[in-house]
Computed example of a mutant assay.
Amino acid sequence: MVGTPGGLLSAALVADGARPFTTFYDDATGERVELSVATFDNWVAKTANLLQDDLGAEPGQRAALLLPAHWQTQVWLMACWAVGLIVVPGGAPADADLVVSGPDTLDEARACGGERVALALRPMGARFADAPEGFLDYAAEVAGHGDRFVPYVPTAPDAPALDLGGREYSAAELAEVGADAAKEWGLTSGDRLLSALPFTRESGLRAGLLAPLAASVPVVLCRNIERLDESALERRISTERVTRTITDSEG
């Protein structure tokens, strides 16, 4: 259905799969990655297949995501929703059925008694030099999965999809959140968002994923943007043709 994040991504793929979907910067490493709608969709499908086939994830299970603002976080959100999981950004691993962790939160993630996935978050999606004990190395496993995903159990748009600070959202409500943000910000074809907000807050989800999906516009996602001075940020905005920068007060 179009009225869900997955439906919005499918519609964007049909409309123009070659257009940019997300451009990611890490200003601590100098990394820049740009993914088209089609490439992003492939990553989502591969990750959803890994969840369903390798990890045995089932609709209604809870997934704690201990991840920063990153393009792979966007992928994991969409993949979890495709499978029917309830995503808990920054959630307690001990209360989750599975946990997905970046390299800086592995000790915290070990509290999860279910499946544990580790993301190295290295440039170009590289794997860990040495996989952390007790975790599946995402980058080492995901590439072998298919580029198309079909859930074993179709998920309902009104089923819980996100738990953020104790408030639950269905997939349909997430699409509405994105549509409301796109309307609030007046997004139209030709716009491009820039966000550096974390996905542990609704403002970060709105700016970094849901509004771009709803408005079918690209997003520039920035990690460690505080390392940029004002002139460097202005150059990025100009170079990436950003038309809307979402701040805390606007998010």
Rank of each mutant, 00 (worst) to 15 (best):
A196T: 08
E184I: 03
L209N: 02
V217L: 09
R201L: 12
V217E: 14
A182W: 00
G190P: 14
E184D: 15
D180G: 03
S189M: 04
A182G: 06
E184Y: 12
L193E: 05
A214V: 01
W185F: 12
E184Q: 15
S195Q: 10
L213H: 06
T188I: 10
S189A: 15
A207L: 07
G208E: 08
G208Q: 07
G204K: 01
L197Y: 01
T200K: 02
D191Q: 13
F199A: 07
A215R: 03
L210W: 07
T200V: 09
L194E: 09
S195M: 10
F199N: 04
G190K: 01
R201Q: 15
L187K: 03
S195G: 13
R192G: 11
V217S: 10
G204S: 11
E202W: 00
W185R: 04
L210T: 09
K183N: 15
E184S: 15
L197R: 02
S203T: 12
T200C: 05
V217D: 14
E184C: 10
E184H: 14
L210I: 07
G204M: 05
A196L: 00
L210R: 04
K183C: 10
G208P: 12
W185V: 04
P198E: 11
L187I: 11
L193C: 02
D180M: 06
L209P: 01
A214M: 01
A181D: 13
E184M: 13
G186Y: 04
G208I: 05
A215P: 13
A214Q: 00
K183V: 12
D191F: 08
A211Y: 10
L193V: 15
T200Y: 02
L187C: 13
P212N: 02
W185G: 08
A214W: 01
A181N: 09
A214E: 02
V217W: 08
S203M: 05
S195N: 10
L209Q: 02
R206N: 03
A215L: 08
R201F: 00
F199M: 11
R206C: 05
R192M: 03
S203C: 13
G190I: 09
G190M: 11
S216V: 02
G204P: 07
L193K: 00
D191P: 14
V217P: 12
A211F: 07
A196Y: 01
S203R: 09
W185N: 08
V217K: 04
L205S: 09
P212T: 05
R206L: 03
L194D: 12
S195A: 14
A214I: 00
E202L: 15
L205F: 05
S195D: 13
G186D: 06
S195K: 01
L209V: 04
S216T: 10
P212Q: 00
T200S: 15
S195L: 06
L194T: 06
F199Q: 05
R206S: 04
L187T: 08
D191E: 15
A211D: 13
T188R: 11
K183Q: 15
A181K: 01
R192E: 12
R206W: 03
L209F: 02
P198Y: 07
A196E: 13
E202H: 00
L210P: 13
G190A: 10
L187Q: 08
